[in-house]
Design a protein around this nucleic acid. Structure first.
Length: 928
RNA sequence: GCCCGGGUGGUGGAACUGGUAGACACGCAGGACUUAAAAUCCUGUGGCCAGAAAAUGGCUGUACGGGUUCAACUCCCGUCCCGGGUACCA
């Protein structure tokens, strides 16, 4: 059994996977004596379709790093688990009545079976599942900590979360007069007396303005089809990301998370972590910090009515020719003049009822209405009209803007449409036809600002409003508080009950609040969430529980801590474990989580740190985004109204419908007609119009998904080539970060490489290695390879390490090298990439322990120094010849030798060189 | 529109802080082995040109147009195309 055959591979891989599991090879323990390294994959949602070849791409990379770090002496934490709450399982439950826990478990089993076949070095004893009550007990517990916390901006430089008790103390003493906290905009100012006189109900309502997890009436994205509320990032183009159902904006009592409290720290922290620049940039944009000025205009003839505006361009205030309020703005009612009232109210109503989708798709359409009121510009006392338009958003800034059509494109479009005046106040091209939006010009036509630069004028403007007492500098964020809940069954229940309408936390010893059984997974007839169906589901037998459940991101916002101490019944993570493992050294996952999971996780990590539960400010020190493996979809063409399919080249002659054909039915571009007919009952009677006796399909690169019938299952690749080939091939495909379509074109090359490697250890079909001393040449090959592999893994360039292995094996093969002293270190170096074949050869070499517990061989520069260096010699930048010189030969001598060369003389045509450049160890260039 | 990435042979891709472009692999072509095929092995393979052919040699070439430099896939300016993100954020 010496041939590296399919049968042998199957045996080797099964044998070692079993052995590794039996001996708990990858089990890891907290051990402060050893340096730690934490490599994490973004845990998957276990979908019913199983794993496809795209999933393992990142997992293979992280597994290579994990194994390599172990060989380098690190204590490596490399866990895997499942993000198991989610809508698909619930949708399936609604359709079939099957409990989502059952389907979820089944899917997890499939995933685990598939993952185990690839030979990952996960410590499965640390697996977490977010739907497991032992896990979500702690998700609930963290929610309780956030409910019991507020954000004190006076604590430390950028503020810090504190227990709610410190807020209550202060309220008892001084009311909220001296408090600077992250809280709702509409939080009233109260005295200690007011506070003490509040009823319990009033006290709780007041505290809700401050809690990090709080209940409030907010505008939410309600998706009637899914029966749930969606977060902003789950809505794409006005429809739900999952399913594509319409979404509307409605007001609803909702749990939210005060992530805005952390805006500044989330921003600042980005400079301390090694993440891809695009992801950091996305988070910066998402947080959307802008510095500006907030001040008010008074309403003409009604001086007690003040309209607050926010602007980043106070330097253009003399160019403001009208004000615009959001339709939802509370002052609209008060300022509208009687003659304009009916028009205004009509506009406000349509604007409010316009779905998000309409507003999105009509971004460029101008609409608005005049209120009849005028406001006074405090800078020049000019009266300017006040309008209402839905391009001003109620949720950002103050919900009102000063419109400067000369220097803002939206204001310009509006002014043009309604024929409002346009003033130029920044020096530059004429603004009547096009707004001029410049940050580095001079201010003109602007009273005391004349002659100042934009930046100087902004400072002057802020000073003006501050001194006049009508405004101040203001930092604004685009970031909104995160809605935390959904009207669904398959999620974590809140540890909350209602006592007289007041939300209260259950006692800690009553955790977890487990999901009750219900008869159907739909909302109740009265429109309550599914949990409303649970019979007699009351806290302590009398208090109603909160009926919504936590959103998808709850369980994933802290799971990396649970892996550190996964089975602890007394804490979400034991202190000693948390202090040892601290944070994730390497996190690999898709960039689609840039503004969701990765932002929420950073938020929870910071909050847990503030409250003293963990030590790290940032959860993930280094992040790599792996690219996506796309599918190659195949298409067939059915002639409309018939069951006849026409080959791709002839489709233009007919009216056809384009349909996906499963890729297993297509060989190259040629359809296997017999298999196609058996694919679905309706195709049995299909007829075909062929080209050259064959049916050709069209190909398109698309996302790999079940619905597109282009999924490649890793199991099939493993059946054919083995897990080691799959692993190395996925790495060989190209840089980890790149997205690429899956094709197996090159897989034979990788397979052949492994066989060649195997054959180095075998002579005439028998295992045989020689104990002869290796020659200089062999040692050079070995050490060059070790150096390159080490460098490539450290820089996450796995495709080039596979190439280097190939070069090495090609060279050793042509040298017929079978020397133990060369081959044994190579087995270790290869083991992170191809763990099974390496383990087998390691044992054939007579070793007893596992290769995965050996030590990565150290390369030695002494074997790599060359006796001569090959210099390319170029004349006027064109390489004309090669010359060998000793590595330490002085520049002058090289120059002389080069100029003496016949070939060089030929190219210089005897002319004296203008200049000779000698780059030591690199190149010689002669300029004539 | 704006913000990030990225454009290199027939294909996937390599090229360290500017220093021999196309490593490695696939595919393709030719050859060896074979009755034959598969498998395996060997040789060649960016394009154009010269050479009967080989050896060899020349020109050209990293999306396009400029520039900096002894030297540019790499740096700078402009244009085009592809991918991702974002979208009335005042």
């Amino acid at each position: 059994m010496a041939e590296y055959s399919r049968e042998l591979i199957r045996q080797i891989e099964a044998k070692w996977q079993q052995h590794w599991a039996d001996t708990n090879l990858y089990k890891v323990f907290t051990n402060p004596a050893l340096p730690k390294y934490y490599v994490l994959d973004m845990f998957p949602y276990p979908s019913g379709a199983g794993l496809h070849v795209g999933h393992p791409l990142g997992y293979i990379a992280s597994d290579i790093v994990a194994r390599y770090k172990r060989l380098k002496g690190f204590n490596v934490l490399h866990p895997m688990g499942f993000d198991a709450f989610g809508l698909p399982a619930e949708q399936y439950a609604i359709q079939t009545g099957q409990h989502p826990a059952i389907t979820t478990q089944r899917n997890i089993d499939t995933y685990k079976r598939q993952l185990k076949r690839i030979g990952f070095s996960y410590d499965w004893s640390r697996e977490v599942q977010t739907c497991d009550p032992n896990y979500y007990k702690w998700t609930q517990w963290i929610f309780m900590q956030l409910f019991n916390a507020w954000y004190n901006k006076r604590n430390e430089e950028l503020g810090k979360a504190e227990p709610i008790s410190s807020l209550i103390n202060e309220l008892n003493k001084n009311g909220n007069r001296y408090i600077d906290a992250a809280c709702d905009e509409d939080t009233p100012l109260i005295s200690a007396e007011d506070w003490k006189n509040f009823s319990d109900n009033e006290k709780e309502n007041f505290l809700q303005h401050y809690r990090l997890a709080y209940l409030s009436e907010t505008m939410v994205n309600w998706c009637p089809a899914l029966g749930t509320v969606l977060s902003n990032d789950e809505v794409k183009d006005g429809v739900s990301e999952r399913g594509g159902y319409p979404v509307e904006r409605i007001k609803m009592m909702q749990w939210s998370m005060r992530i805005t409290a952390y805006a500044e720290r989330l921003l600042a922290g980005l400079d301390t972590i090694d993440w891809p620049e695009p992801v950091k940039e996305m988070q910066r944009n998402w947080i959307g910090k802008s510095r500006g000025c907030e001040f008010y205009f008074t309403v003409a003839g009604n001086p007690e009515l003040k309209i607050d505006v926010f602007t980043t361009r106070i330097d253009t205030v003399f160019g403001a020719t009208f004000l615009v309020l959001a339709p939802e703005h509370e002052l609209v009612e008060k300022i509208v003049t009687p003659d304009r009232r009916s028009d205004v109210m009509q506009y406000v109503n349509t604007a409010k009822n316009r779905s998000e989708r309409e507003r999105m798709s009509e971004v460029k359409r101008v609409s608005g209405v005049f209120t009849g009121a005028y406001a006074i510009n405090p800078f020049n006392n000019e009266m300017i009209p006040v309008w209402i338009a839905d391009y001003v958003l109620a949720g950002y800034g103050t919900g009102a803007v000063m419109a400067v059509p000369g220097h803002d494109e939206r204001d310009h479009r509006f002014a043009k449409y309604f024929n409002l005046p346009i003033k130029q106040v920044v020096d530059g091209p004429d603004v009547q036809e096009k707004a001029f939006d410049s940050w580095d010009s001079q201010i003109i036509n602007s009273g005391f600002m004349n002659g100042l630069t934009v930046h100087e004028a902004i400072e002057a403007g802020i000073r003006f409003v501050t001194e006049k007492g009508i405004g101040r500098e203001k930092i604004n964020y685009r970031l909104r508080d995160a809605i935390f809940g959904r009207q669904r069954y398959w999620g974590e229940p809140f540890p909350v009950y209602f006592d007289n309408g007041i939300p209260k936390l259950v006692a800690e010893q009553d955790l977890p609040v487990t999901l009750p059984e219900i008869d159907e997974y739909k909302p109740t007839e009265s429109g309550e969430p599914p949990l409303g169906r649970a019979a007699n589901w009351k806290y302590q037998g009398k208090y109603p529980y909160e009926l919504t459940t936590m959103p998808g991101w709850a369980g994933s916002s802290w799971y990396w801590f649970r892996y550190m101490d996964p089975n602890n019944p007394h804490a979400f993570c034991g202190k000693e474990h948390e202090e040892y493992w601290k944070d994730v050294d390497l996190y690999i996952g898709g960039s689609e989580h840039a503004t969701g999971h990765l932002l929420y996780s950073r938020f929870w990590c910071k909050a847990l740190k503030d409250l003293g539960f963990v030590k790290s400010e940032e959860p993930f020190k280094k992040l790599i985004n792996q690219g996506h493996i796309q599918g190659m979809s195949k298409f067939v063409y059915r002639i409309n109204g018939t069951n006849t399919f026409v080959s791709a080249g002839l489709k233009d002659q007919y009216q056809v419908t384009r349909l996906h054909a499963d890729i297993s039915l297509v060989d190259g571009d040629v359809l296997n007609i017999e298999a196609f007919k058996k694919w679905r009952p309706d195709l049995e009677t299909a007829t075909f119009i062929l080209e050259n006796g064959k049916y050709y399909c069209d190909t398109e690169v698309e996302k790999m998904s079940k619905s597109k019938h282009n999924v490649v299952n890793p199991d099939d690749i493993i059946d054919q080539y083995g897990a080691d080939t799959l692993r190395m091939y996925e790495m060989f495909l190209g840089p980890l970060e790149l997205s690429k379509p899956w094709n197996t074109n090159g897989i034979d090359g990788v397979f052949k490489f492994l066989r060649k490697f195997w054959n180095l250890f075998h002579t005439d079909g028998k295992f045989y290695v020689s104990s002869e001393e290796p020659g200089r040449n062999e040692l050079k090959i070995l050490h060059r390879t070790l150096k390159k592999i080490e460098h490539d893994i450290e820089s996450f360039s796995f495709n080039t390490s596979v190439s280097e292995f190939m070069i090495c094996v090609n060279e050793l093969t042509s040298l017929k090298c079978n020397k133990r002293k060369i081959l044994e270190p190579l087995v270790i170096a290869l083991s992170p990439f191809a763990p099974h074949i390496s383990e087998e050869l390691w044992h054939l070499l007579g070793n007893t322990g596992s290769v995965h517990q050996s030590t990565f061989p150290q390369w030695n520069q002494a074997y790599l120094t060359e006796t001569t260096v090959n210099y390319p010699v170029s004349v006027n930048g064109k390489v004309r010849t090669q010359m060998e010189f000793a590595p330490d030969m002085p520049k002058e001598d090289i120059e002389k030798a080069v100029l003496a060369s016949e070939i060089v003389k030929k190219w210089t045509e005897g002319k004296p060189p203008k200049k000779v450049i000698v780059v030591p160890g690199k190149i010689v260039n002669i300029v004539v």
